[in-house]
Simulated scan of single mutants.
Amino acid sequence: MTGPLGRRARNLEELGINMGALMESAPQQHFRPLEPQPGDVYITCWAKSGTTMMQQMFHQIRMIAATGAGDMDFDDISRMTPWADTAVMVDLDMNIAQRAAPRGFKSHQSYENLPAGGRYVVTLRDPKETYVSFYRFFDGWHIERGSLSLDEFFPLWMAGGPGGCDYFTHLLSWYARRDAPDTLLYSYRWAAKNRAAMIARMADFLGLSLTPEQAALVEEMTSREFMHAHHDRFDDSMICRVMEERLGIPDDADSTKVQAVGSDAGVIPPAIAAQIDAMWAERVLPATGHADFASLAAAIDPA
């Protein structure tokens, strides 16, 4: 295995070198794989599709229901809702006691790749929006800023990040479970624009009760403004720390998942947009009957 570069990658090959070195050097002093329990909650949106907002919403609902107060006393939201795909990398015990019930875990996986017997919270997002958001997230963090173009990013978007579940496999898996009682499924755009309704639905799904005042507090703490003001809790700080320790990459990048302004799918290169449209037509349209994401979202979101 080639050792780490000591700097951010400048192309996809170099990214593979750094990530391989990071995993190979991972200590396992604390790591324990997940031991699933009935009723565990998996927040399993695809990459850049609302995972962070749903993690924050889930954690604040359970904390406020249990204690009457919100909780921002953490360094990384993924310490509150551990992520199995990076647990070895950050040497994290997946079974460490959580601050309130139910237990919750982050994921980007399909239903088939998660433990059975759980409950699943999923938001789906337009693929072109995920593409631009994913690129913005990596540019300047894992990838040296400006060294990889939007056109060149396509293989990384298709790979799906840790765990390796691609966008279309994820979407089709969860769309098929849209009416399952163990699954809470909406589009990210609907959940973000209708946070009060999403909070009420999630609380009911979790079997937790909130007063109107408590629900309003969750709504405040899941706003873009609040989360951006606390962006250092949503910036993968655990991964940043091990990148600095093991790869020699300074923990000085803006790796926050909460941007002040949302991603604009209109900047996606036409050739990339055409490839995404072709894959939608090949994989999603025959399975769902929906010619585009807008049509699919209209079918799963409340009128």
Rank of each mutant, 00 (worst) to 15 (best):
M1F: 02
G6P: 09
N11P: 02
I17G: 13
N18K: 13
G20L: 01
G20D: 01
P27S: 09
F31P: 06
R32N: 10
L34M: 02
G39I: 02
G39E: 04
Y42Q: 01
I43W: 03
I43M: 10
I43G: 00
A47K: 05
A47Q: 03
M53S: 01
M53A: 01
M57T: 15
M57A: 14
H59P: 11
M63D: 07
M63C: 14
T67R: 01
T67C: 04
G70E: 09
G70Q: 07
D71P: 15
F74Q: 05
F74C: 06
S78F: 15
M80D: 02
M80G: 04
W83T: 02
W83H: 14
T86Y: 04
A87M: 02
V88F: 11
V88K: 12
D91I: 05
M94A: 01
I96S: 11
R99Y: 09
A100H: 04
G104V: 00
G104Q: 00
F105Q: 01
K106F: 08
H108F: 02
H108I: 00
Y111R: 07
E112M: 13
L114R: 03
G117S: 14
V121R: 12
V122S: 10
K128Y: 15
K128T: 09
E129V: 07
T130K: 15
V132S: 06
V132D: 05
I143D: 03
I143C: 09
G146W: 00
S147V: 01
L148D: 03
E152Y: 14
F153D: 05
F154D: 01
G160L: 02
G163V: 07
F168D: 08
T169V: 10
H170W: 06
W174H: 08
Y175W: 11
R177L: 12
D182Q: 07
L185I: 10
R189K: 06
W190N: 08
A196S: 13
A196H: 09
A197K: 10
I199F: 08
A200K: 05
M202C: 12
M202N: 14
L206W: 09
L208V: 01
L208R: 08
V218T: 11
E219H: 14
E220N: 12
R224G: 09
E225H: 15
F226A: 15
F226R: 15
H228Y: 13
H230N: 13
D232L: 15
F234N: 05
D235V: 01
I239S: 11
M243C: 08
R246L: 13
G248Y: 10
G248H: 07
P250D: 08
P250G: 08
D251C: 04
D251I: 00
V258T: 07
A265K: 12
V267T: 13
P269N: 11
P270Q: 10
A271N: 06
A273C: 10
A274S: 06
A278F: 07
A278R: 14
M279N: 06
M279R: 09
A281G: 12
E282H: 10
R283T: 00
V284M: 07
F293D: 02
A298W: 06
D301H: 03
